[in-house]
Design a binder for these strands. Structure first.
Lengths: 236, 236
DNA sequence: CAGTGGTCTAGACCACTAT
DNA sequence: TAGTGGTCTAGACCACTGG
């Protein structure tokens, strides 16, 4: 593990263990440098990690402060692919409805950047949060990248499998979302009535090398869909 | 302007001017260093900016590549506060329905982290995208931080006013969102029927020093609400 | 194994905040 | 004006990718 990652984790634990609140001040750079016995750049790099995670904010000339969310019970929209990591807050389970190998349609081929009719895994799952239906998800997974998949893996975390069993590194994702109403089939799976609102999200996930490996369409149960996003002001 | 900011802008322009596509390779670090006549760290810092903006991705041992969105017509959820910057893609206008000074309710006081009954500006606006109703927005703005506001400013960009006229720096934001149905009043303002779905978002905006200055509640017209989010894999 | 990006250091100097 | 975070450098060394 890299120095700055380790330091980031330790500072995060420090915040957690001491139950620091929004606006609480962390030790100054100088102190952190001597405490961890590393150079200034390394501390800065560690703090950058925490800033990206929305855990701290830095004010030039003033200090380093804790940033905390004011509300609980919301799902982080930027980290909601694997879910596993949110297990502390939520109990999320899945039921696999269907798992097949299919030929890529033009829509799937386009989003996965592969040839028409290439083989993809098609996985249809219902996901539950604390026992309630959370979403109906259809995933198309490039078989050229993930050569094997079964129901057991899909019931657990496909992302963990890709990371741990296959040793692939997940890099980034694009998500497109809009609001719509449930059709009959979606409503049936979510145990809701058709015509009710839903959040519809399409995701494309990429490996660190830029290859897209997973295209998914997700219909969220509006009753369970509370999300949050923390933005850092690189645009503001 | 800082060196790394300037370099980031130049590289962005280079990508734009040459119409580079997803996966196209940029010059290697060594080349960029000599081309801009700066140290390695400065180039890395510039590339980091572009990576956060979702414009490039870097692959160790391989190169620096262009990252492009596959779809047009979606609003970036992480940058949708000012709107002004999206003017290239969308024509967004506002109509101010109401502008008052009010006493902060407990909800507003809590979200703005101020005393109950402190004075806040209350701004109710309808926003239009390409002539269609986009959203109905209610903002509560801390009068202790923004001492003056009028209809003209609110019709244009409140954020630009805060930045440019008041010289304040906007730092970060928290957004909470969920899907719901329109009530009669909201429907009226959005020119839709009650009972139709909506995306409901609450935002809290902070200055760089961590002070929250704006709490807003936004109801989006589902017909015009197409959003995208690019995630970088700091969690994946 | 050559090419390429990432980490880390030590230190000079700059810019903002608070008092 | 002291304290604190940010920028920038030059260079050593590390880690991953791909032919």
């Amino acid at each position: 593990m890299l120095k700055y990652q380790k330091i980031a984790i330790e500072i995060e634990e420090y915040i957690e263990n001491n139950q620091l609140q929004q606006g609480n001040k962390l030790p100054v750079l100088e102190t952190l440098m001597t405490q961890f016995d590393v150079s200034k750049s390394t501390i800065i790099k560690a703090l950058e990690v925490l800033e990206k995670k929305g855990l701290i904010f830095q004010v030039r000339g003033s200090g380093i402060f804790v940033r905390r969310l004011r509300r609980k019970g919301y799902i982080n929209l930027l980290t909601n692919q694997g879910f596993k990591k949110d297990l502390d807050d939520f109990s999320i389970t899945s039921k696999v409805v269907e798992l097949d190998v299919k030929k890529a349609s033009s829509e799937v081929a386009h989003n996965l950047n592969i040839e028409l009719n290439s083989e993809v895994y098609y996985v249809k799952r219902i996901r539950y949060i604390n026992g309630q239906t959370l979403c109906l998800e259809e995933s198309y997974i490039d078989k050229a990248i993930i050569p094997y998949l079964n129901k057991e893996i899909a019931t657990e975390s496909i992302f963990n499998y890709i990371r741990e069993a296959l040793g692939l590194k997940i890099g980034f994702s694009d998500s497109y979302l809009y609001v719509d109403v449930l059709n009959q089939e979606e409503a049936k799976f979510l145990n809701l009535k058709s015509g009710l609102p839903k959040l519809y999200v399409e995701n494309i996930f990429y490996l660190t090398n830029g290859q897209s490996f997973n295209f998914s369409k997700v219909n969220y149960n509006y009753e369970q869909s509370q999300f949050f996003i923390q933005a850092n002001g690189y645009y503001l």
